[in-house]
């Protein structure tokens, strides 16, 4: 059971086996075809990706631009056709910030997800397949990673290195592979006893070939599961770190917007148009990750499906 997971996975349950590349692809499609929530999640991401790509065309202003009229800053403007979500206390367009914030969120989310899933998968594969001291070493490392408080570590890393979203990704890559690694390891332990692996070995396939061509595809859905959960986790983390004031001051993110609102007395002004939208965007994108994760879980652990 992982605390960061959506979730739902009872410890004792064995994931459904998947073998072969074709079956793998088919299964991924199946996730979205059969699970409406997963489909919704995918749509949310698709939407945010489109917004991020088209940001310069969607956003009427650039996110940090101070909008002026005859030398007067248009600060604290309420929502209007000109400023869909009003302006900040320093005359910046909130809607444009929201649009550009999707770039940061996706960038952090996807890169952290890839890092976490990649490291976790490789660790799990290697530990599970080779066993012995390699396994012991990697699993002790995972134990250590479980003992490090996550958010405090991110704060310390970001403060000591430099306020950058890459350091947030780094911190996630350093710690969060532990969940993925453990689960994949135990999956590999069962898979490697299966007949098709033995068959491959008899036909003279090398370790690497067996590992990556035969075993990996069958555990990939698990990597995807943890990867999709990591997306949300990363977006939340970036937002929290920015909110605490350790974010990159030149990068507009949803967390940055909320911090800006928090320190600029948006609450006293009753500027809901400033506080609510960034939080909703964070929530939606994190939820999308959970939805997709759930989709994978329902395929992997079919007994969970509603009766």
């Amino acid at each position: 059971m992982s605390v960061q997971s959506a979730s739902l996975t009872p410890a004792a349950q064995e994931p459904r086996p998947v073998s072969g590349l074709a079956q793998f692809v088919q299964m991924n499609l199946e996730v979205f075809r059969r699970d409406r929530m997963a489909l919704v999640g995918a749509c949310i991401y698709l939407f945010f990706v489109l917004v991020a790509l088209l940001a310069p065309w969607i956003a009427p202003y650039s996110p940090l631009e101070v909008i002026q009229e005859n030398g007067i800053w248009l600060a604290n403007e309420p929502p209007s056709p000109r400023f869909y979500l009003g302006t900040t206390n320093l005359g910046r367009d909130i809607f444009s910030q929201l649009v550009y914030g999707s770039r940061t969120a996706l960038l952090v989310g996807f890169s952290a997800a890839v890092a976490v899933a990649l490291i976790g998968t490789v660790v799990g594969l290697v530990a599970g397949y080779y066993g012995g001291w390699v396994d012991t070493l990697l699993m002790r490392l995972a134990d250590i990673a479980f003992g490090v408080p996550f958010l405090p570590l991110v704060i310390v890393l970001v403060a000591l290195l430099e306020p950058s979203i890459w350091n947030i990704v780094l911190a996630m890559a350093l710690l969060l592979w532990r969940d993925t690694g453990r689960v994949i390891r135990s999956q590999v332990l069962t898979v490697k006893e299966r007949a098709f692996v033995a068959a491959a070995r008899i036909s003279g396939a090398g370790d690497l070939r067996i590992l990556f061509l035969h075993i990996a595809p069958s555990i990939l859905p698990l990597s995807f599961l943890y990867g999709s959960l990591a997306i949300g986790w990363a977006i939340l983390t970036e937002a929290s770190v920015s909110f605490l004031g350790f974010g990159d001051p030149d990068v507009v993110s949803w967390g940055f917007m909320l911090q800006d609102a928090f320190v600029s007395q948006a609450m006293s002004r009753g500027a809901y148009y400033w506080i609510v939208p960034p939080g909703l965007c964070i929530m939606l994108s994190v939820m999308a990750g959970f939805f997709i994760g759930r989709g994978y879980e329902e395929i992997l652990f079919p007994r969970l499906r509603r009766s």
Binding site: V49, A52, L53, A55, S62, P63, L64, E65, Q97, Y100, G101, R103, T104, L106, L107, F110, S111, V114, A115, L161, E162, S164, I165, W166, N167, V169, L170, D248, D250, V251, V252, S253
Partner: peptide, 29 residues
């Protein structure tokens, strides 16, 4: 020195995402 400690990550990322064009929103020209 302390800048860009992590030059590998962006590369890794660019591979994965077709988002290379949209570096995080920064101040406009």
């Amino acid at each position: 020195m302390r800048r860009r400690v992590l030059s590998i990550l962006p590369v890794l990322l660019a591979l994965v995402l077709g988002l290379s064009a949209c570096a995080p929103a920064s101040a406009p020209a």
